[in-house]
C-alpha cells in the first residue's frame, strides 16, 4: 500500500494541478493577510473559501484521478497486490497531496505574517484541521462514486451533485424544516442536523472560534455549550472522522467484490 501511495503521491506532485492548487492558496492567503489589516475578517473569508472550495476540489480531483489512472490500476490489478492496498494507496496519494497543498499554501503566508506569536493560532489551526478533514472526506466520497460508475460523465455528474447537496441543498432543507417546525424547540434538532453534514459542522466549528459567534446569541450558546465540552469536541471530531472512515470501508468492500 505504501509503495502505491508513494507512486500516486509522486505522480501527483509532478502534476501541474497540484501546483496550481498550492499557488492558489498561497496567493489567497498572502493577499488576505497582507492587504487586510483585520485578522478576524481574513479568517472568515478563508473559512468561506475552505468550506466551499476544498470539498469541490477534493471531489473533482478524486474523480478525475480515479478515471485517469484506470489503466495504471488495471496494470496493478494484474500483479499479486492486494486490491484494497491498490485503491487505498491511490486514495491516500490523492488526499495527502491535496492536503499538503492546502496546508503549505495557507501555512506559509500565515507563518510569514507572524501568526505563531499571536493568539489567533487556534482559530487558524481549526481552519486547517477542518480543511484537512474536508479534503479527506470528499476525496473518499469521490473515489466511491467513481468506483460505482464506469461512465465518466455519470461519475462526474454524481460527484458534483453530491458536493452541491452537502454544500447548498442540505442547508436549504435544513432551513425549510426550521421554518416549518418553528413552533417546536429546535436547538437540539439544529445541533443534530449540523452534525450530520461535514461542511456545516466545519463551518460551525470555525465560527465558534471567532468573535462573530456572539451573533449566534442563545442558539450559539447551546452550540458553544456542546462543542465547548470535551465530549462535544470529541463528538464533532469523531463525526468528521466517521465521515472519512465510512466511505473508505465501502471502498474496501466494493473493490473486494468488483469485477474489473
Amino acid at each position: 500500500m505504501f509503495k502505491i501511495l508513494k507512486y500516486s503521491f509522486f505522480d501527483l506532485t509532478r502534476s501541474s494541478w497540484s501546483y496550481v492548487y498550492f499557488f492558489f492558496y498561497l496567493l489567497l492567503g498572502s493577499v488576505l493577510l497582507f492587504l487586510n489589516n483585520d485578522l478576524s475578517t481574513a479568517i472568515i473569508t478563508l473559512m468561506n473559501v475552505i468550506i466551499m472550495i476544498v470539498p469541490l476540489i477534493g471531489t473533482i480531483f478524486g474523480v478525475m484521478y480515479y478515471y485517469n489512472s484506470r489503466e495504471f490500476t488495471q496494470l496493478l490489478l494484474a500483479q499479486p497486490v492486494r486490491r484494497s492496498s491498490i485503491f487505498l494507496g491511490q486514495y491516500f496519494g490523492v488526499a495527502i497531496s491535496l492536503s499538503l497543498s492546502l496546508i503549505l499554501g495557507l501555512g506559509i503566508p500565515f507563518a510569514a505574517y507572524g501568526l505563531f506569536k499571536s493568539s489567533a493560532i487556534w482559530d487558524f489551526s481549526m481552519l486547517l484541521v477542518t480543511g484537512l478533514f474536508l479534503t479527506l472526506i470528499f476525496s473518499a466520497l469521490a473515489f466511491n462514486i467513481a468506483l460505482s460508475h464506469e461512465n465518466k460523465i455519470k461519475g462526474f455528474g454524481y460527484a458534483i451533485l453530491l458536493w452541491l447537496f452537502l454544500a447548498v441543498i442540505y442547508d436549504g432543507i435544513f432551513l425549510l424544516s426550521l421554518v416549518y417546525f418553528q413552533d417546536y424547540p429546535l436547538d437540539k434538532f439544529s445541533l443534530a442536523a449540523s452534525m450530520f453534514n461535514p461542511i456545516d459542522l466545519s463551518r460551525i466549528l470555525i465560527l465558534l472560534k471567532l468573535d462573530i459567534s456572539a451573533l449566534l446569541s442563545y442558539t450559539g450558546a447551546v452550540f458553544k455549550q456542546f462543542f465547548g465540552t470535551p465530549v462535544g469536541t470529541l463528538a464533532s471530531l469523531g463525526m468528521l472522522f466517521l465521515w472519512v472512515i465510512l466511505p473508505l470501508f465501502r471502498l474496501k468492500r466494493v473493490v473486494g467484490k468488483k469485477d474489473f
Partner: peptide, 9 residues
Amino acid sequence: EAIILLRSM
C-alpha cells in the same frame, strides 16, 4: 435557530 446557518453558501 436559523442563525446557525450564518455564512453558509
